[in-house]
Nucleic acid binder design. Structure first.
Length: 849
RNA sequence: GGGCGCUUAGCUCAGUUGGUUCAGAGCACUUCCCUUACAAGGAAGGGGUCGGCGGUUCGAGUCCGCCAGCGCCCA
């Protein structure tokens, strides 16, 4: 035990010791009922760390440590989410390159130095750079989490681009395919023109954009005049396939079934009825284009309209007009916009429309919501492409019902988060689009047979054997084919796409638990006990994981979801790199230590956003120092520091009423902290424990300190109670302040505190009446106040303290009289029962200066 | 436009089934104290009509309704 306890150096010492001792190593000899398994979120390894990373992981770690002390064998793996677009983007910026699959592989490739323009490089070189950078990033992340004391088993790690994840992702996909849950379709899908990939409904966000409403005149084919529509996307007029109005709209009801002519392009389109048309919006009748927005897709599908595509995957108008634009005038008009971006085409079309007289009045500025890919910065377009989909209840109601039931079956912390799941599932409007036109991801593990003309036959999907996974259809040949047949008539071609990153992330329970690869482990860990995660990815990560487990295992992936809040900056804005308000955790760990930072994180309630507040970290540091000092005091008392001196051995010695009162209070704390932890409310457990500690040191320790120094039974009683209380409190704090508590524990106990039993009331000796301690604390406080108000030293003798209080209070006080007089330096304690039940009041007469 | 959550001391936040224990904690602020566990400390103190309005109730920070502001999710 050091002379002067300090927090410095604890992280390095105990971190290394935990590693060497395997304190957090998973023992797979235990049965499922004895295991507590955690589906740790694999953080996106983007190279930058911020306090959000330490916030939620600390919260989960506190629960993990509690469960471990309760005797559960904790299965606590860690993954790194490195596949997908964030890594690609980071590699592009970091190395100044861009992936171009048409560039051949360069065996001796070295990243460019200081390129002016992004250098195009081949797919394999690009992937190599991704792997290289993520490895560095992952080391930085592991260092951070180790430093923070997160008690994961570092022998259980995975990366989402790693071989195991590719194998599991591909196997799960092939199972989905075999059961008909995965299917391909040529259909309109949301498309990011910057990244040139399809995106899923779950990855959308609305952003307000300034636009203009253009009023356009469509001439009725019967010569009965014009119909006016309003649109913010006049450039889409070439792709117009119909006009729609609400079926109950009397203004347009007579026109349903008739046709109009599209301005400039002179195609004839029908006027139709659909309930989604809003009579109050604009003129109450809208043009349907293929495709201007998602409602167009609905109209197109439900009204069985033709497709007239004009938008290309690069965000520019296709070079050739759709076939329906047959007239010379139409083709000439289209030539004006071919190859232009949406904005450029809009400007040109507006000029043409104005010139033709079809534009009525001036465009009116308007603000409207536009759909964006959450990681993109140009509006999404809708393009018809062949993509892979996974059934998720978006299109079939029985499955949706089953998934809604799963949401109910799942235990949510906090409960109201379940509503977000329900809302999301109920709002699904299509299946899950899982294919992405990207490179750094898990390849879709299929090939297509080519016909005699060398064209892919998409209905002839060639699949690999499961035991050959993972495969890359770009370099592996399908069963029954030779590599030489690639791209040849009668040969095969690989699917060029990768899966959505969520298609891998949705399998983290299967990946971590060894699905189909380690049946013994799987049986001991799956379904998992808890999925900790943040609330904004309920619609993506949580939901998709439920979908995969439901389809594959007909079960939930975990029993419970523990949803964490966000760290907000002090102005209550979400921290984000783009806002430049990110607080990096490494500096905080340097300045205050891991336990102090953990304390701040553990105070954040489940599901509740927390504004970053450095002053709370200081409080955590003070708390940790206080614990060390309190331990030093208790263990510095005679006979207390013999190693292995267990509280149980000292139990019989607790005889004094005030000492037994402390144990009563401690018993309540143990019940309360345990109850809170069982409900995943680590923050409440911490709050209760912390409150107890300060009361313990401020009042109980001060009251019994003098007696504890003395020999004899009375002194032994105090020392025993102090040790029992210290032992329990160290263990109560251990989940929150693992370094501090391990340090103090090591001063007198064998083994790691993190494998010590969670303290419970049953281990305490018979307790007394808590009123004794409460009464003594109360009077001691009054005496201190009298001294403080008189501006005297706390040591100042009190010649007489006169307490007037109800008889029960006085009775309790009497039981602690000796300690009270010692602590308050009270010469004479006079007690008077109050007749009216009032009190206590304390008159303190201080000795002259 | 719909759903969910939040609004309590200058700041950050607790207040679990409505009742002397519910108006609290910490930070900040003021005063005092180097008392032998702790000065990177300790003791004490001032500070809030619990967002607004209305309702249920013997009694509402707590339940209900409406409104306002903030945040998130969705349309």
């Amino acid at each position: 035990m050091p002379e002067r306890p300090t927090l410095e150096g604890l992280e390095a010492r105990w971190g290394a010791w935990w590693d060497a001792e395997g304190v957090y190593r998973f023992d797979r000899g235990r049965t499922r009922a004895e295991v507590f398994s955690i589906d740790t979120p694999p953080p996106t390894v983007s190279g930058s760390l911020h306090v959000g990373h330490v916030f939620s992981y600390t919260q989960t770690d506190c629960v993990a440590r509690y469960q471990r002390m309760r005797g559960r064998e904790v299965f606590y793996p860690m993954g790194w989410d490195d596949n997908g677009l964030p890594t690609e983007r980071r590699v592009q910026n970091y190395f100044g390159v861009r992936c171009d699959p048409s560039v051949p592989h360069d065996e001796n490739f070295a990243p460019p130095t200081d390129p002016a323009e992004p250098v195009p490089i081949g797919r394999r070189n690009f992937i190599d750079l991704c792997l290289q950078l993520t490895e560095t990033d992952e080391q930085a992340f592991e260092d951070l989490y180790r430093r923070l004391g997160v008690s994961v088993d570092w022998g259980l790690t995975y990366t989402t681009i790693g071989e195991r994840c590719r194998r599991v992702s591909q196997r799960a996909f092939l199972r989905n395919l075999a059961r008909g849950e995965a299917y391909q379709a040529e259909a309109p899908c949301l498309w990011d023109v910057t990244f040139r990939t399809a995106v899923a409904q779950a990855e959308l966000e609305d952003r307000p954009r300034q636009g203009a409403l253009h009023r356009l005149a469509f001439a009725r084919s019967d010569g009965g005049g014009d119909i006016l529509i309003e649109t913010t996307r006049p450039e889409m007029v070439a792709a117009c396939v119909a006009l729609v109005a609400h079926p109950d709209d009397d203004r347009y009801r007579p026109l349903f079934g008739s046709t109009v002519r599209v301005p400039l392009f002179d195609t004839e389109v029908p006027v139709l009825a659909h309930a989604l048309a809003e009579p109050g919006k604009g003129t109450g009748i809208a043009m349907v284009c293929t495709f201007g927005d998602t409602v167009d897709v609905t109209w197109w599908r439900e009204l069985e309209l033709p497709v007239r595509p004009i938008m290309g995957p690069d965000g520019r108008m296709l070079a050739e007009p759709p076939d329906a634009l047959a007239s010379a005038g139409a083709r000439a008009a289209y030539a004006e916009i071919a190859g232009l971006t949406a904005n450029g085409a809009r400007r040109r079309i507006v000029e043409l429309l104005a010139h033709s007289g079809a534009l009525v009045g001036e465009p009116q500025p308007t603000s409207h919501a536009v759909k964006f890919f959450e990681k993109g910065d140009r509006p999404l377009e809708i393009i018809t492409t062949r993509q892979w989909y996974l059934r998720n209840g978006g299109r079939d109601l029985p499955l949706r019902k089953e998934l809604l039931d799963r949401g109910t079956e799942l235990a949510w912390v906090p409960e109201f988060m379940g509503t977000r799941y329900t809302n999301w599932v109920e709002g699904l409007n299509g299946d899950w689009l899982v294919s992405r036109q990207r490179w750094f991801g898990v390849p879709i593990p299929v090939w297509y047979a080519l016909d005699d003309a060398g064209r892919p036959q998409y209905d002839r999907v060639l699949v690999p054997a499961e035991d050959s996974l993972p495969i890359d259809p770009a370099s592996d040949a399908p069963p029954g084919y030779e590599e030489s047949q690639r791209g040849k008539p009668g040969g095969f071609t690989g699917d060029p796409d990768v899966m959505d990153t969520w298609a891998t992330s949705s399998l983290t329970p299967q990946i971590a638990c060894g699905w189909e690869e380690d049946p013994d482990l799987f049986a001991r860990t799956f379904p998992m006990d808890v999925r900790p995660q943040a609330h904004e990815i309920i619609r993506t990560w949580l939901f998709s994981t439920v979908v995969r487990a439901h389809l594959e295992h007909d079960s939930l992936p975990w029993r419970r979801a523990a949803i964490s809040g966000w760290v907000l900056d002090p102005d209550r804005k979400k921290m984000s790199k783009s806002k430049g308000n990110v607080v990096t955790p490494v500096g905080l760990l340097d300045d205050y230590g891991a336990d102090a930072v953990r304390y701040w994180a553990a105070r954040g309630r489940p599901g509740t956003d927390t504004a970053f507040d450095e002053s709370q970290i200081k409080v955590g540091r003070r708390l940790a120092i206080k614990i060390l000092n309190a331990a030093r005091f208790v263990l510095g008392l005679a006979g207390a520091t013999d190693r292995g001196d267990t509280p149980a051995a000292a139990a019989g010695a607790v005889t004094e009423p005030i000492d037994r009162a402390l144990l009563a209070k401690l018993g309540d704390l143990l019940d309360g902290a345990t109850e809170a932890f069982e409900a995943f409310d680590y923050a409440r457990a911490l709050e209760r424990t912390e409150r107890f500690l300060w009361d313990f040191t401020d009042n109980y320790v001060e009251l019994v300190k003098n007696r504890a120094y003395r020999d004899g039974d009375a002194g032994a009683s105090a020392r025993a109670a102090l040790q029992i209380a210290l032992s329990a409190q160290l263990r109560l704090f251990a989940p929150f302040l693992p370094f501090t508590c391990e340090e103090a524990w090591s001063w007198w106990q064998q083994g790691s505190i993190h494998r010590a039993p969670w303290p419970q009331r049953a281990e305490l000796p018979d307790a007394g009446d808590p009123a004794v301690l409460a009464a003594a604390s109360e009077v001691l406080g009054r005496v201190r106040r009298a001294k403080s108000e008189a501006r005297r030293k706390l040591r100042t003798p009190v010649t007489q303290a006169h307490v007037t209080a109800p008889p029960e209070f006085l009775e309790a006080l009497t039981a602690a009289q000796g300690d009270l007089c010692d602590a308050g330096n009270i010469v004479d304690l006079a007690l008077s029962p109050s007749t009216d039940g009032e009190g206590p009041t304390v008159e303190s007469r201080l000795a002259a200066e």
